[in-house]
Design a protein around this nucleic acid. Structure first.
Lengths: 353, 353
DNA sequence: CTGTTAGCGCGTTCAC
DNA sequence: GTGAACGCGCTAACAG
């Protein structure tokens, strides 16, 4: 581990001089986008080889071109948390597919990252906002002032932002409708966080005015469209553990709900575990419905009733939108739909059996 | 969705002029790192506000400073695959923790991404190589020629690269030793990919000379240290599905192995499913051992015997190393150790019971 | 505390 | 097909 030291890097000019051509010619030889004779290119490349020149400095190229080839992906506070939910991973996957194919790198950022905020200081050509929370508005402002095109996934419509949506409300309502058709009258919800703060608390009555996370609100609204009243708890995040905690609390209610609506599959799995722990039979004693439709193997051994969302498609759409925006086109906003998968975790309400 | 168009951005100079100060003073007002009177800063900020100026252009700042505040993370070919294995996610998490704390953004790259290769054209200050495969050498060359410090996770030692290692060989040997102490004489392996190509084939006899993935080789060597001869298959990736496929093949061998060594926990879970499918009792009829120690809930309902590696620590070390390298320090290479977790998927060999 | 002076390393006009 | 000049937008030195 000797020389990790950085040797002085040759510049294009040095290469050009060695090759006996002008800097601009050398530049063309590298970018390949101009008319350069094969012989000249050859000489330039040879000179570069000899000097150990690794190609044009991307920083300078970025300044000159006004493009850095980087797309920012802005996620929740901790990357850790974001990565933990497979649905986010699937989405990122879609983004990487499209943006990557267009030659863009993905720069992972958090809204609160860094000192003054990476949002203001990171070199990028556009940004995709994911899992939008409280600071969305502020983030958008910062990005827009930098002149960057912004694409948001599942966010409130906002001036200057292209939104890739999901029918959260309708889908949730469809899930609730499914429960209602099974005769459930006593349902409870495990909600995703309402805002940037803690969670792990009962769902407040005034959630609609207090919550700031678009997805959470819309899913709650969908449930309310079918069940005007329901108790619930706010989970600390989209994890199995949080789902277990929430499940334990809800199962201790009297009367015990006959169905629990979890706002994500991971939460649903946690609820199922809590139910198992309490000795309840699924779906005989309790019905559980999730949201997302993550890969079934992660939910094993249950066949979870859930709302399957096209996460990767969503990501792909966002990636494609950014690419088009950067190409000067004006892509249309999109809205994806979920499909209800009726599995084996929902059944008739105990009272009607 | 009207004006996603990018309005002309004001420059620092314009702001400075409006504020009636020089450009450099304005610059200081923004970076905050110089002596500027509160009143002056105030005026500059007000002018910026008025013009809708969003702060210094990161591209220009990067060129001038020679730093872009971005650390590249180079992963396997498809980001999708990388994200699918929780062990990678855990590691990324560690990297994000350290690098993020230092204010750096993580730029996700693939070795083959983009046209001419993002490795050459992406603006970054340093790179972390992860899941090193065939093209490692070439990648390192490209990065080193750009004068970038390079940190590699689990790679062969190489001039000019700081390696963060794992005791893959020793750990695998310890796992094998565990099986031997239980009386197993007939073990088979499910190997991670040997190189960038397909997989899904029997493990060739000359794997040692053919394989290019450091981690795979070292783990195979560790197994061989205890069991000189063993059959095996090469999985197509680190997934449960690939593990199932591999498991089915190995369980069809005659004589059927009494123990299967999987090179990752996901593969092990796949093998367990294949065993279940074949009606085998675990560990009565078959012992299975994994590698990684991903979160237990992902392996449920089994309590998998596995080699627990400190993945997040590994990532953290890599992140810290990069940060120190960028600070001009010379961090030492590190090597982490795994711990054998004896779960409920390994037991005495059938013949000795 | 603030202004002046020079570039950072390259890509892009134009001419030739 | 090639070269000369200019400036992308900012910041590090210095001088005042």
């Amino acid at each position: 581990m000797s020389d990790l030291a950085i040797p002085p890097r040759p510049t294009l000019a040095a290469v050009a001089e060695l090759a006996g051509v002008s800097a601009s010619t050398a530049s063309l030889a590298f970018s390949g986008s101009g008319p350069v004779s094969a012989a000249t290119r050859e000489r330039v490349l040879a000179a570069a080889e000899q000097l150990g020149y690794g190609g044009p400095d991307p920083r300078a190229a970025a300044l000159r071109r006004g493009r850095s080839g980087v797309v920012g992906v802005v996620m929740e506070d901790r990357l850790a948390d974001a990565f933990r939910d497979p649905i986010n991973v699937a989405m990122l996957d879609g983004v990487a597919d499209e943006a990557g194919a267009a030659g863009a790198g993905l720069l992972l950022l958090t809204e609160s990252g860094g000192e003054v905020g990476q949002l203001t200081s990171a070199p990028m050509d556009a940004a995709i906002l994911v899992g939008c929370s409280t600071r969305l508005d502020e983030s958008v402002d910062r990005l827009r002032r930098r002149g960057l095109p912004v694409v948001a996934i599942e966010a409130d419509d906002r001036e200057g932002v292209l939104t890739i949506g999901l029918d959260n409300r309708e889908a949730s309502a469809a899930g609730a409708e499914h429960l209602r058709s099974l005769g459930h009258t006593s349902v409870a919800v495990v909600a995703l966080p309402l805002d940037g703060t803690g969670g792990g608390t009962p769902l407040p009555a005034d959630w609609e005015s207090r919550a700031t996370v678009h997805t959470t609100i819309e899913r709650l609204r969908g449930l309310r469209d079918v069940y005007p009243d329901f108790p619930g708890v706010v989970a600390t995040g989209s994890t199995i553990e949080a789902g277990m905690d929430a499940g334990r609390e809800l199962l201790a209610l009297t009367p015990r709900p006959t169905a629990i609506v979890a706002q994500s599959d991971l939460l649903a799995v946690g609820v199922l575990r809590a139910a198992e722990e309490a000795g309840l039979r699924i779906p005989h004693d309790l019905s559980v419905i999730g949201f997302d439709g993550i890969r079934p193997e992660l939910v094993r051994p249950w066949d979870l009733t859930t709302l399957v969302q096209p996460a990767q498609e969503k990501g792909r759409a966002a990636g494609a939108a950014v690419v088009r925006l950067l190409a000067g086109e004006t892509p249309e906003p999109a809205c994806f739909r979920c499909a209800l998968h009726v599995g084996a975790t929902t059944g008739p309400a105990p009272s009607v059996r």
